[in-house]
Design a protein around this nucleic acid. Structure first.
Lengths: 116, 116
DNA sequence: AGCCTTGTACGATGTCTCTCGTACTTAACG
DNA sequence: CGTTAAGTACGAGAGACATCGTACAAGGCT
């Protein structure tokens, strides 16, 4: 049987870089885009796993897929299939372990820069 | 007369973004390049104003000019003409004021990522 | 079963980025 | 004044990136 229910991890798994191999330049590049930065901001604020459709980004669906892939390949988010949706979670623990403070600093800077 | 000696600020001045207008995405993008990141690392370590020629970068002179311009336009460094040379200084105070902790976090992360 | 929602894959396109070489400017130094 | 040293300007080319639309796959809902 291909699992009884399989609500958690049915389909194929996606490739995620190891925590020890996160590349700083890659992470910085991933964060250096307004769309992706806002995604990370929302994920950090809610602290939840959210499907791509929950972000209301000002780009098309295919562009959306592209940005989430960049974030995943840089190691910023973790993506898991769940039914037809794909849940996105911030890899906060991994990022904090590898680049201590980076995420918080960027998020804080983003808020400040946003309102000023 | 156009100033008696003029060893400090003779030629035309270069455009630098205001401290209050530094854009986070621009700064992140500027730091997301290995060549520029190494420049910032050297400037931070020495704490000195250094001419472009002091960096021994693995790129040509024109590419060098390009990278320093990106850093300057993002507001990461300040450039001042001095004779035929151009001195580069890290805008640490401005960066710390605008994006507290960002520079230190990136520099620390870079060292750690470097050796691991 | 059929439909709808969610996201992927693929190709196309225009822009930006990194890189270079060559020619030029600017200033110091003899 | 001529030479040298440090950068700049101006193309130019190769590659990456952001964007889109259309066609497709996979899973729930009725």
């Amino acid at each position: 049987m291909t699992s009884g229910v399989g609500t958690a991890a049915p389909g194929r798994a996606l490739a995620h870089p190891d925590r020890d191999r996160l590349a700083l330049e890659r992470v910085l590049h991933a964060l250096a885009d307004p769309v992706r930065l806002s995604v990370v901001g929302v994920l950090a604020e809610t602290g939840e796993e959210l499907p791509c459709s929950a972000f209301a980004l000002p780009v098309s669906k295919s562009t959306c897929t592209h940005h989430f892939r960049v974030l995943r390949e840089a190691g910023v988010i973790r993506q898991v299939y769940r039914g037809t949706a794909k849940l996105n979670a911030l890899r906060r623990a991994d990022l904090d372990a590898r680049f201590p403070g980076l995420l918080d600093v960027v998020l804080t800077a983003r808020r400040r820069a946003d309102g000023a």
